[in-house]
Nucleic acid binder design. Sequence first.
DNA 1: TTGTATGCGTTATCAT
DNA 2: ATGATAACGCATACAA
Lengths: 336, 336
Amino acid sequence: MVTITDISKACGVSRATVSKALNGASDVSPETTKRVRETAAALGYLPNATARALKMGRSYNVGVLFSDTTGGGISHEYFSRILESVKAEAERLGYDITFISKDLGRLSMDYYEHAKYRSCDGVVIASADFQDPAVIRLATSEIPTVTLDYSFDSRSSILSDNVRGMEELVRFVHAKGHRKIAFIHGELTSVTQKRLASFRRTCAELGIPVPAEYVRPAVYHDPRSSGLATRALLALEERPTCILFPDDLSYLGGMSELERNGLSVPKDMSVAGYDGIPLSQVLRPRLTTYQQGAEQMGKEAARLLIEQIEKPDTWIPQQITVEGRLLEGSTVIDIG
Amino acid sequence: MVTITDISKACGVSRATVSKALNGASDVSPETTKRVRETAAALGYLPNATARALKMGRSYNVGVLFSDTTGGGISHEYFSRILESVKAEAERLGYDITFISKDLGRLSMDYYEHAKYRSCDGVVIASADFQDPAVIRLATSEIPTVTLDYSFDSRSSILSDNVRGMEELVRFVHAKGHRKIAFIHGELTSVTQKRLASFRRTCAELGIPVPAEYVRPAVYHDPRSSGLATRALLALEERPTCILFPDDLSYLGGMSELERNGLSVPKDMSVAGYDGIPLSQVLRPRLTTYQQGAEQMGKEAARLLIEQIEKPDTWIPQQITVEGRLLEGSTVIDIG
DNA sequence: TTGTATGCGTTATCAT
DNA sequence: ATGATAACGCATACAA
């Protein structure tokens, strides 16, 4: 490993001067700077991020928390798209990313401890159980954080517009003449509560009744549970004419249940998903769904976090809402 | 931040003793060890991975290279499953993972330089262009590496069994009576070459002719290109009775093309995918496909890499082949 | 058994 | 404009 000491010897200057020259300090002569940089390049010098971090108290490394409650977190398209864009934006700004987790080998630590252990300059909290004390500890610590789809007090967050998304879906379905709309929702997280409230409110505004049996619980990203919920809806005396699923993937469970009952989409039953993952648009018929701006959310999260890291004095907590858009698809038939 | 110095003051012993006690050295009295550890816990001490790494020359941090040629790498289910399992196994063994990329902020470096910059103890190379000089430099450097789905000389690698997978698929289809089998393949990577060779060899063994026009190029994970290839196959005078797609996702492109032509699967056309992602088993009819052992591949990759890191003297390069399994599904009809 | 001294590679302060 | 020196937090060879 070639260090600044090697360069200093090769150039016949002190290590301090080398360091300054490499970092473009103004108090070193242009000639020396040039000479130092050239030999650095010639020797194949690379700064050592570890030593730098130790000295400066800044690691240029941000943690990403992806504790998937439902199992398989990263492998859900929505989250992997967010991860991908967080990564891209962080790297663009000169930061590496490291995963934060509980229990590293024999070391047993919580998220906060893990982040400190790795000297993360900040953490993006995505896909976590926000009731978990370990998550709360991290989010209320002195470590800069940005959360996705959840807001902690006095902290920055990126929110997908669940209220608007659900409202748009309901209004779209309503405009197609539907009055019996069922909603299969995911676990009762804050996201779910927003969608549920928006569903009920929009229906109320449109004068659509929402029988209790039209609202059924399921599990996000779990086609099986949505399939069961679909079966329950089909067993009702008064079937809905349209079913809203918790997410696009879950619709697949409903889809097979519908087929098993000889119902074809959208002729016999209209449906809509949520997320707008690529899969939804490659299905036939194309799924009606609300596409969340995952890429933009990840990008904004990284941007906001790093802004907070680099300008802690002028920083104020911010809630950024990222709007998505309705993908009309062809799974909602006009029964007007 | 509480350091060993704080503990040493609180305990009235030297920092060296604290360090030893914390690391369970045998040359420190049980009483002192106990006292040191208790005050460490009381003070909320956390080891500083950065300082430790600088001193020991070991970061307990492994890099993961996910340069997606086709764009969107992580977000493909196959790769995100691998990432997930690499992460899980590495963490189990006490290692964190960091993404390795080109160009970090203004710093312009290649993969090797990035890995050195972050003092990675090793790198898992997944989903990369193995012809890229930057990838080759990393894989032939002194940094321990494990590659997935590609072998460099004298390096460890984890291989999915593409030869066997393709052979099983072809034999299955053949057993169902098919003699006109088309193969839409992905970009010509080493993986593709293996599948292609296995396809041709197995067909030859079974006495099935493979007309040139039955082998069509497309792009992995790109439904559109597979859709076009499907269209070309349907335009042939002598249509195949079965089409093998490059991967499960790509089949969706073929699926809609088939539907557009009024062909139903498997009645009018048999099909099979590759990968065995969850989506494939939730489609109706369930897709016939070959499920790659992504989880096991990721786990083995992490295990092998860390073994090499921790026992460099007794280590020898290893190629581990992870077998998958045929998922029969219902998209290949029996025309025997 | 415990403590002293040193260095990992870097940056920052303060002389020169 | 340049250099000597110290410090970041930790682990270790060696002395006591």
